[in-house]
């Protein structure tokens, strides 16, 4: 079992903008297809560690990125066991 955190966006434009803003930052993150257990307007989400998610969310929020939600998802065998909406 593992856990991942995700940030979702209002549109792909916002997602790519977020990715660009993070280019030179030292966070570990990846753009991934949004897990179906999360509902999102945009098909891509930013996956990051759960340690970083608050800092990442704040950083992007300060840059006026249209964030839809921050999520913690516990996953095993390609299934979501639980989804927690952080904000």
């Amino acid at each position: 079992m593992g856990q991942n955190c995700y940030i979702t966006f209002s549109s792909i434009h916002q997602a790519i903008r977020a990715e660009k803003l993070l280019e030179k930052k030292r966070y570990a993150y990846k753009m991934v297809p949004v897990p179906r257990s999360i509902s999102s307007s945009c098909g891509s989400a930013l996956q990051c560690t759960c340690q970083d998610i608050t800092a990442l969310g704040n950083f992007l929020g300060d840059k006026n990125i249209e964030i839809e939600g921050l999520y913690r998802v516990k996953e095993a065998k390609l299934r979501a066991l639980s989804v927690e909406k952080l904000s």
């Binding site: 792909i12 434009h13 997602a15 790519i16 297809p33 098909g43 891509s44 989400a45």
Partner: peptide, 14 residues
């Protein structure tokens, strides 16, 4: 879709 080839296209459009 969210695969990396689509993301490459998304980045271009951006």
């Amino acid at each position: 879709s969210g695969h990396t080839r689509t993301l490459a296209a998304d980045r271009l459009i951006y």
